[in-house]
């Protein structure tokens, strides 16, 4: 197993930086096919395509011929105590064989037990027992997929009393034990830090920066007492500032803007992504992480309605 760990670790360290990417959403299919916009790469939600025998898969084939693609999943459920879902993993592997993504990612989370799926990215308990459990599952999955998998820090809305390991250390140990890569979601750090009383700057400093192959940025909704990771609006300055810090510490990695609800037209989405260029040099404002006034409307974390096929699109 150690041999594979080193092999995966080396692969992760040699993964390319494709630049600034966008999430591929069905709303933008026609625009992308017609205009071939100058986006560096696209991230696709694996579950949106793995069962499709129709338009989504047909469009993805065309886009994968023109752009680098990363497969990002929401159903691996790496932290679950249920057995691994080999049917799901087989479909994931088949999709990867067809699309040839530069890497495959998912989240440090669990989505359900007893064969149920909450379709949420639920927080894992951070202790020795779960670290061992998760590393064991990562090893099995990487060997099955014959490639390292990249794991993202989720946005969290609670912490468990039984947790004994800080999330940044948990991610470090995970990557050391399995050779997996890390996807640093800067917005998730900001959201989780506000919700669970930790310092986001400290979190980002503590991560193993050489294991980070990608970053996510996104908008969120501030509800006063907590922040919800809504992916439905522009990125706030505080998150851009954290991104700037992470950019310096990682030396710059592939960066993607997530937008999953109230999705704007393609040009507005792309313009928001390109703001990242302003934060890819210098160290402006990293100590200026201020609390923001709350937004008004009700929020839903991790919106998933965009994961249902848009048959009229």
């Amino acid at each position: 197993m150690d041999g594979n760990k080193d092999k995966y670790s080396d692969t992760v360290k040699n993964l390319p930086n494709p630049g600034l990417g966008l999430g591929l959403r069905s709303k933008h299919f026609n625009y992308i096919l017609e205009h071939n916009p100058a986006v560096d790469w696209f991230e696709v939600i694996s579950e949106n395509f793995m069962d499709s025998g129709g338009r989504p898969r047909h469009v993805l084939r065309q886009i994968a011929e023109k752009y680098p693609v990363v497969m990002h999943g929401v159903s691996l459920s790496i932290g679950s105590t249920d057995p691994l879902n080999w049917e799901y993993l087989t479909k994931l592997k088949n999709l990867a064989h067809e699309v040839k993504p530069i890497w495959i990612s998912d989240h440090l989370c669990w989505t359900g037990v007893n064969s149920l799926n909450t379709h949420d990215l639920l927080p894992v308990i951070l202790n020795e027992e779960s670290l061992k459990h998760i590393c064991n599952r990562i090893n099995q999955i990487q060997d099955f997929l014959e490639r390292p998998v990249v794991f993202e820090n989720p946005s969290t809305y609670l912490t468990f009393k039984q947790s004994t390991i800080a999330e940044w250390d948990f991610l470090r140990y995970m990557s050391e034990e399995t050779g997996c890569g890390l996807l640093l979601d800067v917005n998730n750090v900001y959201v989780s830090a506000f919700n669970n009383d930790f310092d986001p700057v400290h979190y980002i400093h503590q991560l193993p920066h050489d294991r980070i192959v990608q970053m996510h940025i996104a908008g969120h909704q501030h509800c006063g007492t907590h922040i919800i990771d809504t992916h439905d609006r522009n990125v706030v300055n505080d998150v851009w500032n954290l991104f700037n810090l992470a950019w310096q510490l990682t030396g710059g990695v592939a960066t993607l803007l997530e937008w999953d609800s109230n999705i704007p037209d393609f040009e507005a989405y792309h313009a928001e992504l390109l703001k990242a260029k302003q934060y890819m040099s210098g160290l402006a404002g990293i100590n200026d992480i201020a609390e923001k006034l709350p937004d008004e409307e009700a929020a839903v974390s991790n919106p998933v309605d965009f994961l249902v096929s848009d048959i009229l699109g």
């Binding site: 639920l122 839903v300 974390s301 919106p303 998933v304 309605d305 249902v308």
Partner: peptide, 13 residues
């Protein structure tokens, strides 16, 4: 937060 989002999210789907 998780309890409320669970039903709202799936209802939207």
């Amino acid at each position: 937060i998780y309890r409320q989002s669970y039903i709202a999210r799936l209802r939207a789907c």
